[in-house]
Design a binder for these strands. Sequence first.
DNA 1: ATTAATCCAGTTTTT
DNA 2: CTGGATTAAT
Length: 706
Amino acid sequence: MVLNKLNLNEEQYQAATANLGFNLIIASAGTGKTSTIVGRIAYLIEEKKISPEKILLLTFTNKAAQEMKERVASILSKKIASQIEAGTFHAVSYRYLKKIKPELVLKRERDISDIFKTVYDRRDFTKASIYLGELEAQYYTPQYLYQLYTFYQNVELKLSFADWLAENKPEQKDFLDIYQDIVEEFEEEKQIFNSMNFNDLLLNMKKFLKEFPVKYDEILVDEYQDTNKLQDSLISDLKPNSLFCVGDYDQSIYAFNGADISNIATFKERFPNAKVFTLKKNYRSTKPILDLANKVISRNERLYEKQLEVTKLSPNIPPVFKKFLDVSDQYQWVAQNIKKSKNNYKDIAVLFRNNSSADSVEAHLRNAGIPSKRRDSRSFFETKEIRAILDIYVFLANPKDLIAFINFMEYAKGIGPAIAKQIYEFLVKLGDGSIYRGLISPNYDYNVRELFSKNRQNTQLLLFDDFVDLGSPQRFKDLNFDDKFLSNPILKYPKLSQDAAFLLYNLKYLMQKFQQVKSPASAISLIGNNDIFKYIWGYLAKQRAQTKTGNSSKELIKDHKNKIYERAKILKRLASKYQNHRAFLNAVILGSNELDSGEGVNLLTVHASKGLEFDEVYIVDLMDGRFPNTKLASRNISFDEENSSRGIDEERRLFYVAVTRAKTILYLTAGMEDKTSLDAQRKIKNYKISQFIKEGNLVTFPAFNN
DNA sequence: ATTAATCCAGTTTTT
DNA sequence: CTGGATTAAT
């Protein structure tokens, strides 16, 4: 039997072969969770004769889904593995929704929050403020309100936003109506743009299920402790007859996203026939490492009694804590120590609480000649040059995407979001509904004077002097447009600047060429070689080369140009792994597995390290304020005072997760001063050692160097 | 109203 | 060093 190949121990085997029905598996760190899930899938297919496409596997990251499918492929077959529906809640929802609604556009969170801000800015808060007289509470900034709204969507399914706020933020009562109004208009606005964000995927999936019920024979949920109310309700809406949830409340680290341990805690009550299995045997870490993890986590309130059994008794290397004078001394030491290590780079990880540590760590490793690998390349996709390429790409793939259009048109001098939007709308008019036609073969019958005037603000006030002075296409004669384009009525739009006309001309060319381009890599090439990108390229390089005195040397500009060129090349390389536009563009937003760069020592945030393991682990920046991140700890509590799992408890769980990534060697470090973060005149930042070091009874080794 | 230029603060974790 | 807010300019 296939199950034997997995060498499951007794407790894993019991769980994997549990009867169909509602099963909760409490799987502590390193207890062979993945094997158990894979075993379960094998059992369902082989013993229960369930066909693979009737199995839904929900994971927390797409990478995890990928890995499990690979494990299934290796013990069953590739074909079977590919038939299982597996992915994150979001990815699976997206797949379903895209089938019935092909025009759906998944937008970056950033673009969505821009929409939110636009809607917000149309409101006037001063009226509400005057009522208060002495302002007791200040109204929220758009960013914070958006954050709050996103959070609300994840945790509250019944109450309206205003009602929910009234309960949780009573001091904001004077603004509730405005807030509610904003979010309602925000929802409408998104519809106009046809765009969705992550939450919308889940919310629309729920709607979809009401109309078209989907039935699986069993749903498996990994990282169940990190599901929130919204996700849990999605599981309920799938109305499974059989559910296999795997989680560990000690590793719940996503409260900021609404993750709700009560999903685990109330499992037995919600499913009266539920069976609970507990995996206690830890195969990953040595005793001293587990002792440390257990000692610290035991300060948190226990949900169920849990005793981890150590199976790996050697080697016996105690975790070491090292204290340094300056934060950079830590990184220096870490780099030197890694250099001496016998382990392969890929088996070593440096973990940090805040992503802001990553750059320094990476730099120090590089100086020591150690290659490193950053799993999260989010920052890469956030660079302006990459965003510009992708915006152009997204627009070419879907010319209805106004947001993408605005994003790259804004680079043209004289063009901001408002005018960019106007240009777009005029072109669509001129093309009788299609911007493509608007650029290539516009309808000349329009009275452009009227068209350009109509959209002006305050039309009622200005009756007959509401004429725009049409711009002459002649002003663009230096740009050497072909006659056909020169006759395009859009060129008469007075606010169309030289640069904007230049971009439009090239956009026309791009849209024509794009028709023949099928692969993402060649699309990137097409865009990269186009003058629109070259324009943006030059603009960014120049901007970045600008020194404080205002002068920019040719050398510097060249440097920056090269950097941008290198990034574009990386993007092309990433794109080459994908076969079609949609697959690639999705991966960019939904987050994908293959998007990591290079080989070497793993650089990860603690959050990103979840589910992974390494022979040798370094946890850096263990200072009070940084880890635990006290600022966060205190702020999160204010969301919900009763829930003790927030705040410091969550930070402690983070520490637990970090420690339990290590198999045999674990180092913890701290630096007591930070000179780099502040400029020379201001005071050096002084830190205290993280409380978790004390809680773990770790012996402090003073700094060696310095 | 809208964009460009300038100055200032602040720095979380993920789909 | 970037983004946000403020101010100046069109």
